[in-house]
């Protein structure tokens, strides 16, 4: 019988959607009991949101000022203690989970299964390697805890409607003081979140400047879409780093993805493999993006994008 502990991701006030997606992944393991651990300074709202997820049995709450910021070195020893008695410990494969979960794995004496994209059994998982150019099926040993991150783009969010018990716990771990939070500069844009948006409009190097990138923002706003970018556009400073889509940026699965002035390098395509429909606008008919696009339009984006915005009414 699998007993799974999911490490909740939150922003200090609200639960991140990546947690509900991790629950869906865990629920693919037949007969699993699923608990969620919330480590926070002020956990009431977050714990209530976690308890409302369908399929969750229990929410373990560790409330402490030390858990105000998500510092891996502080969270990992607590999670490792909470893991006692669980067969699996899952976290989302977001920058939060990628930071903390391998540290948990090392404390538990196991390697981590990174980026689960499909569950074949309680210990057998599919995960992408080589930027998603190959899919590896691995089997973890039955006798050891499975510590894993969940590729959130591969799973829908668990529905609401649950009513799990909430239990305050004290893992009693010794916490280090060698790591201190200084600041966070977040881009709260009022636009949909790139990682969970149904529609995404992305721009590439072809935009040429931060000023020109307004074309992308404007089209996105018209569509109610999130904005993304290629690495080249981020490196050139047109947009902030948190908009990067790809192997080393965000892996997303929107209903529709507009790639505008993006060539379609494999590292970029890795980020949108699960997009339902890919629309490419590029002036080069030979650009690799057209090999993967569902709908392609060859032409100059500076002409097409304003036209498209207008045509959408």
């Amino acid at each position: 019988m699998s007993k799974i502990l999911i490490v909740a991701e939150h922003d200090g006030g609200k639960l991140n959607a990546s947690t509900a997606k991790s629950v869906t992944c865990a629920a693919k393991i037949a007969g699993a009991t699923i608990d969620v651990a919330v480590l926070a300074a002020d956990a009431a709202v977050i714990a209530a949101e976690a308890a409302a997820l369908a399929g969750v049995s229990k929410v373990l709450v560790v409330e402490s000022p030390a858990n105000k910021e998500p510092l891996a070195a502080v969270l990992a020893p607590q999670i490792a203690k909470l893991a006692a008695g669980y067969t699996h410990v899952f976290g989302p494969s977001t920058t939060f989970g990628k930071d903390v979960m391998p540290r948990v794995a090392a404390l538990l004496g196991v390697s981590q299964v990174s980026d689960i994209m499909a569950v074949d059994g309680s210990h057998t998982f599919k995960r992408p390697i080589y930027a998603g150019n190959a899919i590896l099926t691995v089997e973890a040993p039955a006798g050891a805890p499975v510590v894993a991150t969940v590729r959130v783009a591969s799973f829908a969010a668990a529905a609401a409607g649950g009513s799990a018990a909430i239990e305050k716990v004290d893992p009693g771990a010794a916490l280090p003081s060698h790591t201190r939070f200084v600041s966070r500069s977040g881009a709260s844009t009022g636009r949909p979140d790139l990682q969970s948006a149904a529609k995404v409009v992305s721009g590439g190097r072809a935009l040429g400047s931060a000023e020109n990138f307004k074309l992308i923002y404007s089209l996105a706003d018209k569509l109610g879409a999130a904005v993304g970018a290629s690495r080249a556009a981020v490196d050139a400073g047109y947009v902030p780093n948190d908009l990067q889509v790809g192997q080393t940026g965000k892996i997303i699965a929107p209903q529709v993805y507009f790639a505008i002035g993006i060539s379609g390098a494999i590292q970029h395509m890795t980020g949108i493999k699960d997009a339902r429909t890919i629309v490419a606008i590029n002036k080069d008919g030979e650009a690799p993006i057209f090999e993967s696009a569902d709908i392609g339009l060859v032409g100059d984006l500076f002409k097409i994008v304003p036209e498209l915005e207008k045509a959408l009414g």
Partner: peptide, 30 residues
């Protein structure tokens, strides 16, 4: 290794897409 490699598969390939000729056709398909 930590884990047994069961198998390695190529990623599922996407269906071949279409090329539209202009914005009007694009909006139509969308």
């Amino acid at each position: 290794a930590a884990f047994k490699t069961v198998k390695v598969d190529p990623p599922p390939s996407r269906q071949k897409g279409i090329i539209v000729k202009d914005v009007a056709e694009l909006v139509g398909v969308l």
